[in-house]
Design a protein around this nucleic acid. Structure first.
Lengths: 195, 195
DNA sequence: GTACGATTGTGTGCAGCGCATACATCGGAA
DNA sequence: TTCCGATGTATGCGCTGCACACAATCGTAC
């Protein structure tokens, strides 16, 4: 590996590209995330990133993988040990807030055409899926976790996307959170195990 | 309005653009949906569509509006008069299949940055939202339809998106449908009103 | 040490894109 | 019949992804 002191070789261009990409994503949205802009921000030639990313999709996948890991941490932080259906609502709210606070990142994670061969990305998705399975097992220990985990993820995900796209007309994040909570509670009443 | 016989004036370029856009969407995915490609297919100059669409987003919104209407019809056709929670599963399956059969269109409808000022689009969304409210009122007549409609839409939408993005590893549409049905049944057991 | 090959950077070029601007053509109303 | 607004064309700019050839540097085998 080239040492960082050199001026010709960057040192860790790959990480610098991902960092630059995340900044651009926040500033200009998904449309601003171009390989050339990333190269400019990293201070290298327009085609240098191609040494580390096969194409734009590969860069996007790397950024998305970061996003998946952060989402998993964000959810885990929202509720350390969820036990009741009501705790599920907290986590769904956290999911939607994550999306609303980083709309561009969230869309990149879930809406951009993605390189299916990205191992980093696949691993991050496996991680989030595993988190949800554990979550469901903790809340509904005596039920089949498989379909419930699907349903929980889909519910939170759908709420996030529909809010993000303005399909629900909520103006403030608090309004959105309230509506999310109500929707989740409609399907997960706090008193029952639904089955 | 210029009559169709003319060679200079197209006659109905706007409709021709939308039609061409839908074809391109099916053939090449969202990336192939460019104003220039649409113009080529319609047989006009590259900038002619700008007389009918302010920018690319406006064209996309017009295409998406068609998609919303078709989705509403598709759902209504899946089950004429849903009464039981199990019928809900049929409609969720129809929702997901719609997405899986027209992935590019579905992504355009829900994932592309959209012109929020498109009235055509807003009206189509209001229609689908109204359909879901009626649906929920029919199945759960004695419950508050508002949060339930949110939840039902979000559940179906989340399942559609997660399947579309390959977050669930299902290979065949039948497999996907089965998994969707199981997830919906986990939240809407057929015997109860959940509340 | 030094020669050398792999790695990682640069420079150039091409086609395609969205879009702004100026100009051409046509239909219909006055 | 005249003229104006609507709708088409032509041209050009800056941006993009990406392919290709070339340059610099690093690690290593000798």
């Amino acid at each position: 590996m080239p040492h960082p002191g050199s001026s010709y070789h960057h040192g860790d261009l790959r990480a610098a590209c991902v960092r630059a990409a995340r900044e651009l994503l926040e500033e200009d949205g998904a449309a601003g995330l171009s390989l050339r802009a990333v190269a400019r921000r990293a201070g290298v030639s327009p085609t240098a990133p191609y040494r580390h990313f096969a194409d734009r999709d590969a860069l996007v996948s790397a950024v998305a993988a970061h996003g998946y890991r952060e989402l998993t941490e964000h959810l885990a932080a929202a509720h350390p040990a969820p036990k009741s259906p009501d705790d599920l609502a907290d986590i769904a709210v956290a999911y939607v807030r994550f999306a609303l606070e980083r709309p561009a990142m969230f869309k990149v994670m879930f809406a951009e055409p993605c390189d299916p061969a990205s191992e980093e990305r696949a691993a991050a998705i496996t991680a989030i899926s595993g988190y949800l399975h554990n979550l469901v097992r903790g809340v509904f220990p005596d039920r089949d976790p498989e379909p419930l985990a699907d349903a929980v993820w889909a519910l939170a995900h759908g709420l996030a996307f529909l809010h993000l796209d303005g399909k629900f007309d909520t103006s403030t994040p608090e309004q959105a959170s309230g509506r999310v909570r109500a929707a989740v509670r409609a399907l997960f009443p706090r008193s029952s195990t639904i089955g």
